[in-house]
Each structure stands twice: as structure tokens, then as C-alpha cells.
Simulated assay, not measured.
Amino acid sequence: MLNVYLSGEIHTDWRERIVEGASGLDVAFTGPVTDHAASDDCGVAIMGAEESKFWHDRKGAQLNAIRTRKGIADADIVVVRFGDQYKQWNAAFDAGYAAALGKSLVVLHGPDHAHALKEVDAAALAVVEQPEQVVAILRYVLSGELPG
């Protein structure tokens, strides 16, 4: 079984497209909490309120880092998606962390990000533009089967 960590933007359906496309493959998917409010507020919800937005956000970031570090450490493949709508500094960090751990890294973004992400892309074993290409990579890794 392949353990695949899906990191990156949370505003489009790319994760669902990969999970649905990989149905029937021997793959288990993990990833960050994609409920934006829950992710932002987890630290104060669990460890107590903060008056300062800085400490509110820091508690959430540190708690989310526990999940992220575990997911990336356990992954065979890390897929990092950079979307168009927001700057995903966390996605860039996750890609760097995965690369530092020697994980097989697949980067997913549109052509408009090619220049900005050239260093991230250089660390990846594959760079693709569509979630379906990630599914084709997973199928090939598991079975050697090429797209039809």
C-alpha cells in the first residue's frame, strides 16, 4: 500500500479528484485539516483562548504542525498543490520538509506558477498540472500501467 499525503491549497476539489480517481488502487490518503476555520482555531479550541491574534494563530500553527509532520513522515509520496487564489506559504514549507526527509515529492500547479516555483519544482520527482496526472503517477508506481 502507498501512503500519500495531500498538501496544499484547500479551495478547489483537487483532493477529491485524486481520491476518486485512485479508487481501486492500493493507496491510503492523508492530509491537513481542510476545514479552514477548524484549522485556524484548533489551538485555542483545545489549549485556551488568546487575546493576541499572533498567539491565536501560533497555537493553531503549532498544533497543525504535529499533524503535518506525522503525515509527511509516514508518507511514501507527498503531493503538494499550489493553487491560483492565494499564496500557499505552508505548501512551500511542506514541499521543503518532504524534500529534506527524502520523500518522493509530486508538485501540482498551473503554468503561471512555473517560474515562481522553479526551486520547489527542481526538488520534485514529478511536476504536473492536473490531479488526474497524479492519479496516473500512482497507478504507474503501483502497477507499471500507462494511461490508456
Rank of each mutant, 00 (worst) to 15 (best):
residue 32 P to T: 06
residue 43 G to E: 05
residue 69 R to A: 14
residue 75 A to S: 12
residue 46 I to S: 01
residue 39 S to C: 06
residue 71 G to I: 06
residue 70 K to Q: 10
residue 49 A to G: 09
residue 82 F to S: 04
residue 31 G to C: 02
residue 26 D to K: 04
residue 27 V to P: 03
residue 57 D to F: 07
residue 32 P to I: 01
residue 18 I to G: 05
residue 23 S to E: 15
residue 51 E to I: 06
residue 49 A to V: 10
residue 44 V to D: 10
residue 23 S to D: 13
residue 54 F to H: 10
residue 33 V to H: 00
residue 45 A to L: 14
residue 68 T to Q: 11
residue 84 D to F: 06
residue 75 A to V: 05
residue 48 G to S: 06
residue 85 Q to K: 13
residue 35 D to W: 06
residue 30 T to D: 11
residue 60 G to H: 07
residue 51 E to F: 03
residue 30 T to R: 03
residue 36 H to M: 12
residue 45 A to Y: 04
residue 39 S to A: 15
residue 80 V to G: 05
residue 73 A to K: 01
residue 35 D to A: 09
residue 45 A to W: 10
residue 71 G to Y: 04
residue 82 F to G: 04
residue 51 E to H: 05
residue 44 V to E: 15
residue 69 R to G: 07
residue 65 A to C: 02
residue 65 A to Q: 12
residue 55 W to P: 00
residue 78 V to I: 11
residue 20 E to M: 09
residue 43 G to D: 01
residue 86 Y to R: 13
residue 36 H to E: 14
residue 17 R to L: 12
residue 21 G to H: 01
residue 62 Q to V: 09
residue 31 G to Y: 00
residue 53 K to A: 14
residue 87 K to W: 11
residue 57 D to C: 06
residue 30 T to W: 03
residue 53 K to C: 04
residue 21 G to P: 01
residue 23 S to A: 15
residue 53 K to I: 14
residue 87 K to R: 12
residue 28 A to I: 06
residue 71 G to W: 03
residue 79 V to F: 03
residue 89 W to L: 09
residue 44 V to T: 15
residue 20 E to F: 02
residue 44 V to Q: 10
residue 63 L to Y: 03
residue 56 H to P: 05
residue 67 R to D: 12
residue 78 V to Y: 05
residue 81 R to Y: 13
residue 48 G to R: 03
residue 28 A to D: 01
residue 69 R to L: 08
residue 54 F to W: 13
residue 85 Q to M: 07
residue 47 M to K: 08
residue 75 A to H: 03
residue 40 D to L: 15
residue 65 A to E: 08
residue 20 E to W: 02
residue 56 H to T: 10
residue 66 I to Q: 09
residue 59 K to I: 10
residue 53 K to H: 08
residue 20 E to N: 14
residue 64 N to Y: 00
residue 33 V to F: 00
residue 52 S to I: 03
residue 84 D to Q: 14
residue 24 G to F: 07
residue 88 Q to D: 15
residue 28 A to C: 02
residue 41 D to E: 14
residue 56 H to N: 11
residue 86 Y to S: 11
residue 36 H to L: 14
residue 68 T to W: 01
residue 77 I to E: 06
residue 50 E to N: 05
residue 63 L to E: 02
residue 59 K to Q: 14
residue 46 I to A: 06
residue 79 V to G: 02
residue 47 M to G: 08
residue 40 D to V: 13
residue 41 D to W: 12
residue 83 G to F: 09
residue 61 A to G: 12
residue 87 K to L: 13
residue 88 Q to M: 08
residue 21 G to L: 02
residue 37 A to H: 07
residue 33 V to C: 09
residue 55 W to L: 15
residue 46 I to K: 03
residue 59 K to G: 09
residue 88 Q to V: 01
residue 88 Q to G: 11
residue 79 V to E: 05
residue 75 A to W: 04
residue 23 S to T: 11
residue 80 V to P: 04
residue 33 V to Y: 00
residue 88 Q to N: 12
residue 85 Q to G: 00
residue 34 T to F: 04
residue 80 V to N: 05
residue 58 R to D: 07
residue 60 G to M: 07
